[in-house]
Design a protein around this nucleic acid. Sequence first.
DNA 1: ACTTGCGTTGGAGTGCGCTCCAGGACGTAG
DNA 2: CTACGTCCTGGAGCGCACTCCAACGCAAGT
Lengths: 139, 139
Amino acid sequence: MTGTRDEEYLGIREVAASVGLSQDTLRWYEREGLVPRVERDGSRRRRYSPRHVGWLRTLVLLRRTGMPTRDMRRFGRLAADGAATHPERLALLSAHRDRLVARIAALGDDLAALDGKVERYRELIAQGRDCGAPLPDGD
Amino acid sequence: MTGTRDEEYLGIREVAASVGLSQDTLRWYEREGLVPRVERDGSRRRRYSPRHVGWLRTLVLLRRTGMPTRDMRRFGRLAADGAATHPERLALLSAHRDRLVARIAALGDDLAALDGKVERYRELIAQGRDCGAPLPDGD
DNA sequence: ACTTGCGTTGGAGTGCGCTCCAGGACGTAG
DNA sequence: CTACGTCCTGGAGCGCACTCCAACGCAAGT
């Protein structure tokens, strides 16, 4: 095959630094089946191929956008089953995408509300302060 | 004072339904000091004032936007200390606001990346499928 | 030969945010 | 009086995503 040039493979330390997961998390992802079994060198040490690293970056993206590891596992298992699972993977991914869009929109609304509250605090302080509340300041 | 009209007070059931937290969570928030002690009726049952409900809605907003309960507790304790803590509360709130802005931006970037992946899957399927990968499909 | 450093494994522990439960008290309907 | 529904309290338990640890293996450096 084309690849398998040893210098392209990375140790766990480098991968951790490069994808932004801890070594422990990398091992945990593997044990949990989010990542296919990683190749080993003569001393049982993990050697990550560039393809593997790419996959890990995808997982980080999914994780960061709120996908539960349970779904990442499903996604990983599908990927291991080859091209036939493309449609199913697409469905998973695009459902996740849609949820993300909704979440971003919701956060946008929440941001507006938060800005309103910040503004009210600024006013309270700018004016004579003391809103006259004996308890948490209402809304 | 003006308020304290009994019909404006709500039981835990109604408050739960109205703010979107479970009764257990409401009780837990109180025990954890996120909410000041709630008034009780003759049978030790909680009666929430409109002000309290407003405060709970604020907590829900903060929670939904990712504020840890630890910070909500700080915020609550400050609020209990009256108007003198307005500046500190403002600082807390606006720091949270800034983090939220950053998070929304980051999610926007992630959404773009995700859209790229979705698009690639669509192409793979539309074309003859099979991307020729013996493993997770790279990036 | 010995130390140092980096990796390995399986399993236990952690922090967060709830969630559930047992045991009990109250008020109302039948 | 009894039964029922709703709420109370304190405390245990849970799901998630890690994170830490002990005990060990291997290889290079001194």
